[in-house]
Amino acid sequence: MTKKENFLKGIFKENPLFVALLGMCPSLAVTTSVENALGMTIAVVFVMVLSNFLISLIMSNEKLAALVKPVRIPVYIVVIATLVTIVEMLMHAYLISLYKSLGIFIPLIVVNCIILGRAEAFAAENKPTDSIIDGLGMALGFGVAILIVSIFREFLGTGLLTIWGDLQFDLNFIFDFLRISPLGMFTQPAGAFISLGFILAIIAAVSAKRQEKQINQVKGVKANV
């Protein structure tokens, strides 16, 4: 596997949210606005890249790995929890409004199964550089997924896309009816479930069609032979 493939698999082929259905709790809770989704992405990228790096450093050292192996899950949890605490403190200091709107979901990055899953499945068995690339790809894959959900929800729910107050993308010239009567349900909890449900269904439909095409191609080749 090349470095590029390693990076891209997290975004498309093994996307943690859309394909593996991991990390559902934060992806439903923080997608009320694009702003929150971006903040969550930054936090997850930071934690995931560093945790993958540190864990693969620990596990690639033979002496340390032998010592850590029987208690590896608690060790991973401590590494991840430390990084999450650092992110929490940094956000509290520099991004106070984001800290308040994400609330409890910053400390809950600890139990985000994507991070622990990659630590166990990839970082423990691969070199530090590869692990950083894998962590970056997976975290960005998660970020892209929650951004898609949040764009869907914020746009339908308010008719506007706002990013940190300064940049306001007003897309209403196309969908004027949304400004007049925004679908408020989409900013509420029910909207999160519906949005994710429909996005997953669209992805399932597209991938089923692609598979069908591939099977037909294989059949066609066989028929020609």
């Binding site: 259905l21 029910a190 909207g191 479930f193 429909f198 399932a204």
Partner: peptide, 23 residues
């Protein structure tokens, strides 16, 4: 259920209806 909605997608949409009732 339509083929694309089988499994998780339809479950999420059912959950959405439950969420509307609860709010």
């Amino acid at each position: 259920v339509p083929k694309a909605f089988k499994g998780a997608p339809i479950a999420l949409i059912v959950a959405a209806i439950l969420a509307i009732i609860f709010t």
